[in-house]
Amino acid sequence: MTTQQQLSTVDKPRVTVMGAGYAGLLAALRLAPHARVTLVDPADHFTERVRLHERAAARTDITHPLAGLLRDTGIRHLTHRATALDPAARTVTTDDGQVLLYDRLVYALGSRTNTPAPSPTAPAPAPLGRLYTAESAGALCRRMRGGRGSVAVVGGGLTGIEMAAELAETYPDWSVRLLSAGPVAAGHPTRSRTHIHKALSDLGVRVEEGTAVPGPEAVDADAVVWSASMVPNTGLAAAAGLVLDPATGRIAVDAGLRSVSHPEIYAAGDAAAAHSAAAGALRMGCATALPTGSRAASSIISGIRGDQPGPLKFTYVVQCVSLGRRDGVIQFVRGDDSPRSRSLTGRPAARFKEQIVRSTIRTLRLARRAPGLIPAFPGMS
Rank of each mutant, 00 (worst) to 15 (best):
I374T: 07
P33E: 12
H53M: 14
D96Y: 08
L131D: 13
L200W: 06
I265D: 05
R368D: 09
S227Y: 08
H80K: 08
A88D: 15
A82E: 05
H262M: 13
D86E: 15
T234R: 06
A117K: 15
A139D: 14
M18V: 09
A278L: 10
V153L: 08
T248K: 02
H53L: 05
A370K: 09
A279Y: 12
G138V: 01
D270S: 14
S343G: 06
V151R: 03
W226G: 00
L85I: 09
S192F: 00
Q5E: 15
D327V: 00
L128K: 11
Q5K: 12
G68D: 15
P246K: 12
L70H: 11
L7M: 14
D41N: 14
V207N: 04
D95K: 02
D220M: 03
Q355R: 13
Y316N: 06
G210N: 03
P189R: 12
T3P: 07
G346L: 00
G249I: 00
G241R: 01
D96R: 09
P13R: 03
P291C: 13
T60I: 10
S302Q: 14
R193I: 10
L25W: 03
L69I: 01
P375G: 08
G249T: 04
C320Y: 11
A281F: 12
S229I: 02
A137C: 08
K12W: 07
S8W: 10
G147I: 03
T94G: 13
V10F: 12
I300E: 11
V205C: 06
D61Q: 11
L101K: 10
L7C: 05
P291M: 03
V321T: 14
P216M: 07
I161N: 00
V207E: 07
A297F: 09
E166Y: 01
A126P: 11
L366I: 13
T115K: 01
D95W: 11
A28N: 04
F377P: 13
W174E: 10
R326S: 14
R30Y: 07
G235D: 15
S302E: 07
N233K: 09
L78W: 10
R358W: 14
G303I: 13
I330K: 11
I304M: 01
